[in-house]
């Protein structure tokens, strides 16, 4: 369903992504691994249309390269950025409402999904009238994922969902990702916690210095590579 070929991103003179190609099939959970600065986040942002890039990105065969982020969302791609980016002044409920911006006319559907999110994350329901900026890190992460799901995406781009969270919260987040996978949502997951990510994923790509250094079934990658080695970039 997603097909990326020869993706390149540069920030001025620095080439962050130097020709990455990857593909995801319907219902697959694929993880993108690599050291800091390997170009994982840039790859995700470029797929979401938020970074200028060259190369082609195809969604179900449609070439969406160079599209604006708002157009790509309407194609069913939702992004959870590493920086989380809750809207701090807006309440939890308002944050969720904006998640469904692309389908805002479907009022009943949006209300229904909101109840679904509250069932999935009861903490958010308790705090729905609170400003998002006052939530804890874990709650913000839940909010951002819930907000992304409000658009009923077909493809979810998850960037470092466990970053900086307490271990119990990390477990909750991964349990939730597993649940989404069971519901056959296609997910591209960037994660520092490689062992947890590989345990959950179908396939994996390893990026090094902006290029794909290895790819394969998650189990193979987990067996073949020394994970520490992977992250120290040796």
């Amino acid at each position: 369903m997603l097909e990326v070929s020869d993706l390149k991103v540069s920030y001025g003179a620095i080439n962050a992504v130097r020709g990455v190609s990857l593909r995801l099939s319907e219902g697959e959970l694929v993880t993108l691994l690599g050291a800091n600065g390997a170009g994982k986040s840039s790859t995700l942002l470029a797929i979401a249309g938020a970074l200028k890039s060259s190369g082609t990105v195809r969604l179900d065969g449609t070439d969406v390269s160079g599209w604006s982020p708002e157009r790509i969302v309407r194609q069913g791609v939702a992004m959870v950025p590493e920086t989380r980016d809750v809207f701090p002044d807006l309440t939890v409920a308002e944050n969720l409402l904006l998640g469904a911006y692309a389908r805002r006319r479907d009022r009943d559907g949006v209300a229904e999904d909101r109840q679904r999110m509250f069932a999935l994350f009861p903490r958010l329901q308790e705090r729905q009238e609170q400003a998002a900026g006052t939530l804890s890190g874990g709650e913000q992460q839940m909010l951002v994922i819930a907000r992304a799901l409000m658009s009923r995406p077909r493809l979810l781009l998850l960037d470092e969902p466990s970053l900086g969270l307490a271990p119990t919260v990390v477990d909750q987040i991964f349990a939730m990702i597993a649940e989404l996978k069971r519901q056959r949502l296609t997910i591209l997951l960037v994660e520092q916690n490689a062992s947890k990510a590989l345990a959950l994923a179908d396939r994996a790509y390893v990026l090094r210095l902006g290029k794909v250094a290895a790819e394969g079934r998650a189990a193979e990658i987990a067996a073949a590579s020394d994970l520490e080695h992977l992250y120290l970039g040796g």
Partner: peptide, 11 residues
């Protein structure tokens, strides 16, 4: 506050 994020939600 977060223009880019808003765009990534379809605004």
């Amino acid at each position: 506050t977060q223009f880019r994020m808003a765009r990534m939600l379809g605004v």
